[in-house]
Amino acid sequence: MRIHCPLCGARDRREFSYKGAALVRPLAAAEPEAWHAYVNLRENPAGPLAELWYHEMGCGSWLQVTRDTVNHSVLEVVLARDTALGAGA
């Protein structure tokens, strides 16, 4: 498996670590249900999924990778800092 890091180019999977679904962190004051959904519940699609990978053994970038969980094809990779996942935080 290879992931195309926007900064480093295509690199082997073993340079990356995985965090899971890319979700927007709730506001501090959000209801417990929102936090439960953020930490525990997962849509877990069989198909394209936006997820977070960390180029730990490379440039250290957190990436948002859109990948098909059925055939593993990578549809898009962007730097996570260019997304708005911290909107709530």
Binding site: M1, Y18, G20, L49, E51, R67
Partner: peptide
Amino acid sequence: DFYSSYAARGNLP
């Protein structure tokens, strides 16, 4: 393998 998957097959690492 440490990534979400429904593929029932893994990778080399």
